[in-house]
Design a protein around this nucleic acid. Structure first.
Lengths: 205, 205
DNA sequence: GGTAGGATGCCTACTGGACGGTATGCCTCC
DNA sequence: GGAGGCATACCGTCCAGTAGGCATCCTACC
């Protein structure tokens, strides 16, 4: 395992460039040449680290799992944590190329059915966990189907994000997120809990 | 304007095949050869009717506008009309290849920025119109931002539809739609109006 | 109503270029 | 001196698009 430092650096450079190109063009329209140009490496370097375009895309998708795994709740209100998660994700979408590329690859289905489903599932599990905690704290309406709710929330966030991307290059994503919560929360949480939440983004995320 | 009948038929055949392939593969990964095979026509025929792959895709996208234009409200409750619209759209997504292909092309951004935005805008305008009627009828919570709400609703439906497609090939789309309305309506309509709505799909759409 | 002539609609063969991937060799550090 | 890390030249394939020819039907004039 020699020379790890340089090798890891170029690997990371390639991964980042690939994420950018995948984000901008999608999997099929992205070309290895453009990734090479943007990364400033040669074909030999790239294919040393990733044996195919597909493997490279899978590595990008994996970044999403890493982001999820790295997120941690910060509030003692679990619904608030859910809201905060949405905003944290929105900021990641605006600034982190790896997350952006990963999301695009996850969203457009095609050759990657397996990892795509896993990615969706990861989000839904995370959301469902938060909802369970919120329910146990007595914040949710009784009788809510948590699986259905987590599906709706992840789906809705996916769509909000997508439309924001197409219509405004994700510039208005934070605002749309706030709009979503405004509409969604009354059907989810009980009034007494609703009063304690800040739907708009909180400082220091 | 001679021989319209046969020409129109092949044009329609090509359009349908193209919609199917675009739906399954996306724009970039779709190949003209596959469209030709599926349509059972030759290159000459296709390129006689559509001068390029891009033009063909645009024609498919146009089908979406036609669907929107063809839809008509049937209830005297405007919120109910909104719900019904969602279900009608869901059924179209399950059965109408043109709508399926059109949606996929609209959703994946890339070369079509202009018509994509137009398509989104068409949906949002339609939804906003329904919401305005509902507001004027006194069904909505006072102070609701209709533009924001229509953005959230179209975005959420987009996402619901997409996740249903990736996870279950749109098999559970109707159920997810119901889940969405269950969560969304309490934040949108007033209780007295809510009581009069059927959130689940109504017979005879 | 028969036929010339022309447009419409379609077919087949081809082309140039780009793309993903490979083979082979060189440099550098342990 | 050997393996890890990378550079370069090359290859086969496939793809969007084109060129040019051919059949079919409509129109017009006799």
């Amino acid at each position: 395992m020699a020379k790890q430092a340089r090798a890891l650096a170029t690997r990371q450079t390639v991964l980042l460039a690939a994420a950018e190109v995948f984000d901008e063009r999608g999997y099929a329209a992205a070309t290895m040449s453009e990734i090479l140009d943007r990364a400033g490496v040669t074909k030999g370097a790239l294919y040393f680290h990733f044996h195919s375009k597909q493997e490279l895309a899978l590595a990008v998708i994996e970044g999403q799992g890493a982001w999820i795994a790295g997120w941690e709740p910060a509030s003692d209100s679990w619904v608030q944590n859910l809201i905060d998660l949405g905003y944290a994700f929105a900021h990641a979408l605006q600034s982190d190329p790896l997350v952006r590329g990963s999301i695009r690859l996850t969203i457009e289905h095609g050759s990657f059915t397996q990892p795509q489903i896993a990615a969706y599932q990861g989000w839904m599990d995370l959301v469902r966990g938060l909802l369970e905690q919120a329910r146990d704290a007595g914040d949710l309406h009784p009788g809510i189907d948590l699986v259905a709710a987590s599906g709706v929330i992840t789906g809705a966030v996916t769509g909000i994000q997508l439309s924001s991307q197409v219509l405004a290059d994700r510039q208005d994503l934070i605002q749309r997120m706030a709009d979503l919560w405004t509409l969604l929360l009354p059907g989810l949480v009980q009034p007494h809990a609703l009063a304690r939440l800040s739907v708009a983004e909180r400082a220091a995320s």
